[in-house]
Simulated assay, not measured.
Amino acid sequence: MSLPVLAKENILLNKEADTKEGAIKMTGQLLVDRGYVEPSYIDRMLEREELTSTYMGNFVAIPHGTEEGKASVKESGIAIIQVPNGVQFGEGNEVKLLIGIAGKGDEHLDILSQIAIVCSEEENVEKIVSATSTEEILEIFEEVN
């Protein structure tokens, strides 16, 4: 059974995160709960963040695992978490949109390019952060395909 890369069940609205680590764990747990990754992938996501920040600017962070974490990926998938009140990802780097990714093989590169296209438009990020339904967010990502 193949899971869709992004489904409305992969999107959480109006969440709170006190710390960057808490935000990453929440994102990873959604990937675990939806069947994309093994629980150990969350540790690889935290390792990745220690190596280099996944903050991308424009209120967006894209937490993902290290190269070693690929062994924990069962299916390629995206988890999107809206954090309207923001969470700090380092000095002055406020994140309101977490996009967790897990990619089999090189599929993460395609996923990243799709996310980059959507999130490079500040207007799209604002729409996602203020969206009141998972369907609204899905539509924004589907318009890119």
Rank of each mutant, 00 (worst) to 15 (best):
N93I: 05
C119H: 04
Q114R: 15
I80Y: 09
V125K: 02
N124D: 11
V87E: 10
V125S: 03
N93L: 08
K96H: 06
N85V: 01
E94W: 09
G92Y: 02
L109D: 12
E122I: 07
N93H: 10
K104L: 13
I80D: 06
Q114E: 15
V118P: 07
Q114D: 14
V95K: 08
F89G: 11
V95W: 04
G92N: 10
E91Q: 12
G105D: 13
A116E: 03
V95Y: 00
I99C: 03
Q114I: 12
Q88K: 14
F89H: 08
V83E: 02
L98W: 09
I81Y: 04
P84H: 02
I115L: 07
V95P: 14
E91Y: 09
N93P: 11
V125W: 00
E123V: 12
L109K: 07
N85S: 13
E91H: 12
P84T: 07
D110E: 15
V118A: 12
I101C: 07
G105S: 07
K127C: 04
E94G: 15
N85Y: 05
I81W: 03
A116G: 12
V118F: 05
I99F: 09
F89P: 11
F89V: 01
K96N: 13
I101V: 12
N124Y: 02
G92K: 11
E94V: 15
Q88P: 03
D106Q: 11
C119T: 15
E107Y: 07
I117L: 14
V125Q: 04
D110Y: 10
I99V: 12
G90L: 06
C119G: 12
V87H: 09
V83L: 13
Q88C: 11
S120Y: 14
A116T: 12
V125C: 08
D110T: 15
G86T: 04
E122C: 11
E126L: 08
V83D: 00
S113C: 01
G92I: 05
I115F: 02
G92D: 07
L98I: 07
N124G: 09
V95Q: 04
I115Q: 05
L97R: 01
L98R: 07
G103H: 09
G92M: 05
F89C: 00
A102L: 01
I101Y: 06
A116I: 06
I80A: 02
L112C: 05
K104S: 02
F89L: 08
E91F: 10
G86S: 10
V83Q: 01
G103Y: 00
A116L: 08
I111E: 07
A102P: 04
E123K: 10
I111A: 05
I117D: 14
S120T: 11
E94Q: 15
A102C: 04
E126Y: 08
I117F: 09
P84D: 05
E126R: 14
N85Q: 12
D110H: 14
